[in-house]
Write a protein that binds this DNA or RNA. Structure first.
Length: 464
RNA sequence: GUCCCUAUCGUCUAGCCUGGCCCAGGACACCGGCCUUUCACGCCGGCGACGGGGGUUCGAAUCCCCCUGGGGACGCCA
């Protein structure tokens, strides 16, 4: 047990996206590796946009990925009294002040600053004001003007910004609610977070938050800013680039271990290794090997990893997942072939569970109709003999083991004088309806004698 | 525009700190071949990068500077 305390602090304004998931993962991994504490905090100070559905969605996604937390979830909306007290404290100490500038005035100032080629920041109009007019106001933090603020980022190294670049941040809105940059400081401090791992887009916030930690008398935590994830066009990852919701990948037939493995390798590396189980990661993960530049999300590689995990996955577990998908598609699986056997025939030929489901459907439903081109080629009058022979030899089998099935086909070959290449395709179309399927022997074995014979007979009848 | 960060194959990256082992290694994708009862899997091979310019050095992907490119921030969002 170490004293490392890290947190993941999503705002519940949508689903858990790829970037957030990676940040959560990095936090989780480090906490587990160092045997520290992983805290989940819901940053819902934006009353307008925060929803319970989003909270649920985020929780579900973390659960799916296997990211368990030790404390929380804490909701900032439950902690407003604390924030209010801290605002008052800063006000009393003269470290914050009331600002009566209106939205319109601020907009005008911003535009003017931009026009003059400068940074559009607050000019400090109310900073030295002593009167307290009876008008709506916000509270701003008095950011130091002199000197510079620097911190040593665990990923990026030393980052320094001149305080003259900073402006006075609003810490309390007109409606009395606190803002993000303020509550995050209080919560990280009060929850004794000693390492803040978050997205790279927060670097600028960090230098604004550090003076607040100091003003409040808190110890400043360490920071690690993880680079952004971009789309193929090097633009910030968004819906335009395809699915960005973690849970959509679940729907698409991805395994959580593939997602975890992909996410961790986007920005982190361990020599030439590519495949990592969660256990491997907990052992090997380190901030030292996290890259400093943004990375492009590559769905092809994620797909490859998924393929790998399907190929090497425990058939029994995959069977359960596959059954769920099939049932979701309205396929009755209960009376059908053994699901584990089904999975085994498909593991090497499916990149996603959805793809596996597509390939598995014929096991549970006799082909409604035959693929036209396939039927024309392999199910016509000249194949009646082969079909008949196959029925004959297969139906006479008392044991339906793979070996027996192979022997039966051998007999068909001998008796017909045909090679397997002339027999297989016909049987395949009769059994599956198409030309693509697992090995014929496997299909026959998994389907079982009764189903096989009846489908072959049906094909024979169809030829007429 | 201003500030911050960043820069190795198309993409993810190893190597950079502690210069020579790197005319740069691995992975995905792509291309070709082999295997094969279909589709796949698998195996073998190929294509492909140190952004540019200056330095420092006997020697630079590795150290320094400039430029350029990319990202981020600049909100009473988080």
């Amino acid at each position: 047990m170490s004293d490392l305390r890290v947190r993941f602090a999503p705002s519940p304004t949508g689903y858990l996206h790829i970037g957030g998931a990676r940040t959560a993962l990095f936090n989780y991994l480090l906490a587990r590796k160092e045997q520290g504490t992983f805290i989940l905090r819901i940053e819902d100070t934006d009353v307008e946009r925060s929803t319970q559905e989003s909270v649920d969605a985020i929780l579900q996604a973390m659960d799916w990925l296997g990211l368990s937390y030790d404390e929380g979830p804490f909701y900032q909306s439950d902690r407003y009294d604390l924030y209010k007290n801290k605002v008052r404290e800063l006000l009393d100490k003269g470290l914050a002040y009331r600002c009566y500038c209106t939205q319109q005035e601020l907009d005008a100032k911003r535009e003017a600053a931009l026009q003059n080629g400068g940074k559009p920041r607050y000019d400090g109009t109310c900073r030295e004001r002593t009167d307290q007019p009876d008008a709506p106001y916000v509270v701003r933090f008095k950011t130091p003007h002199e000197g510079s603020t620097a911190f040593n980022d665990r990923i990026k190294g030393t980052i320094t910004v001149e305080n003259a670049e900073l402006d006075d941040l609003i810490i309390q809105r007109t409606d009395g609610n606190p803002t993000y940059n303020f509550v995050v400081v209080i919560d990280d401090a009060e929850m004794q977070i000693n390492l803040v791992i978050r997205g790279d887009d927060h670097v600028n916030n960090t230098v604004r938050q550090i003076p607040m930690f100091q003003a409040l008398g808190y110890q400043v935590p360490e920071f690690a800013h993880v680079p952004m994830i971009l789309g193929a066009d090097k633009k910030r990852l968004s819906k335009r680039h395809g699915a960005t919701s973690v849970m959509v990948y679940k729907e698409l037939g991805f395994l959580p271990e593939a997602m975890v493995n992909y996410l961790v390798r986007l920005g982190w590396s361990y020599g030439d290794e590519e495949i990592f189980s969660m256990a491997d990661l907990i052992e090997k993960f380190s901030l030292d090997n996290v890259g400093r530049s943004a990375g492009v999300f590559n769905p092809d590689k994620l797909l490859w990893l998924n393929e790998h995990y399907i190929k090497t996955g425990e058939p029994a577990r995959l069977a359960g997942l596959l059954a769920d998908i099939l049932e979701g598609q309205g396929v009755a699986v209960s009376g059908g072939p053994d699901m584990i056997a089904v999975v085994k025939t498909l593991q090497e030929r499916a990149k996603t569970l959805v793809e596996m489901a597509d390939g598995a459907r014929f096991y549970f439903e006799a082909p409604a109709d035959y693929d036209e081109a396939a039927a024309a080629k392999f199910l016509n009058a000249e194949h009646k003999g082969v079909l008949g022979l196959t029925i004959k030899h297969l139906s006479s089998l008392s044991s339906f083991a793979l070996e027996d099935i192979e022997n039966a086909f051998k007999s068909v070959m001998e008796e017909s004088g045909l090679k397997f290449g002339k027999i297989g395709p016909t049987v395949r179309v009769a059994l599956t309806g198409g030309t693509v399927s697992p090995s014929i022997y496997d299909v026959v074995a998994v389907l079982g004698k009764d189903v096989v014979v009846s489908r072959l007979q049906r094909a024979l009848d169809a030829i007429g």
